[in-house]
C-alpha cells in the first residue's frame, strides 16, 4: 500500500485539516477548482469517541467522557479511498477532508493540496496558537523580592 509508506506526511495533512477552521478549509477546497468526483463509501455520519485520560496524568487509563465526531470515507473513480474523522458535528467538513485525503494520494494533486490547503491551514493554526500562547505569557507572574530592613 503506497499510503503506508508515507504515513507521516498523510498524518500531518489529516492533523492539519482536523485543526482547520471549517470556513477556511471550505474556501481553500473550492479554490482548487474542478476536482475529480468522489463517491461516498461511508457516511458522513455523526457518532462519538470515548476520550480517555490517565490517572495522575501518567498512570492507568480511565474514561473521561465522550466527544462528538463525524467520519466519512469516499472513493475516487481511479480507486483511491480517502478517510476522515474529525471532532464535532460537521458533515460537510468531514466530506471535504475525506475527498482531499483521497486526492492527495494522486501525484498530480498532492503538491497543490499541500500548497493551497495544508500550508494555509497550518499557518492559521500556528498563528492562533501563537496568539493564545502570547496572551497567556502576558499573565506570567514575575516574582521579585522586597528588600526589608537595613542592608
Amino acid at each position: 500500500m503506497s499510503s503506508s509508506i508515507v504515513p507521516t506526511k498523510r498524518k500531518r495533512m489529516l492533523d492539519a485539516f482536523a485543526a482547520c477552521d471549517p470556513v477556511l478549509l471550505s474556501e481553500r477546497y473550492h479554490a482548487l477548482g474542478d476536482l475529480p468526483a468522489a463517491a461516498p463509501v461511508r457516511g458522513p455520519e455523526i457518532g462519538m469517541i470515548m476520550l480517555r485520560g490517565r490517572a495522575g496524568g501518567g498512570g492507568a487509563p480511565f474514561n473521561l467522557g465522550e466527544a462528538s465526531v463525524t467520519r466519512a470515507s469516499v472513493k475516487l473513480a481511479s480507486g483511491e479511498v480517502g478517510h476522515s474523522l474529525i471532532l464535532g458535528r460537521n458533515a460537510r467538513k468531514a466530506q471535504i477532508v475525506a475527498h482531499l485525503d483521497a486526492l492527495a494520494q494522486r501525484s498530480e494533486w498532492a503538491p497543490r493540496i499541500e500548497q493551497d490547503v495544508v500550508q494555509p491551514a497550518l499557518a492559521q493554526r500556528d498563528a492562533e496558537r501563537k496568539r493564545q500562547a502570547e496572551e497567556t505569557e502576558a499573565t506570567r507572574v514575575d516574582f521579585f523580592t522586597m528588600v526589608r530592613g537595613e542592608d
Partner: peptide
C-alpha cells in the same frame, strides 16, 4: 449516537 472508537489517552 453510536460510539466509533476510544481515543488514545490524552497527554496533559
Amino acid at each position: 449516537l453510536p460510539r466509533f472508537n476510544n481515543s488514545t489517552p490524552i497527554d496533559t
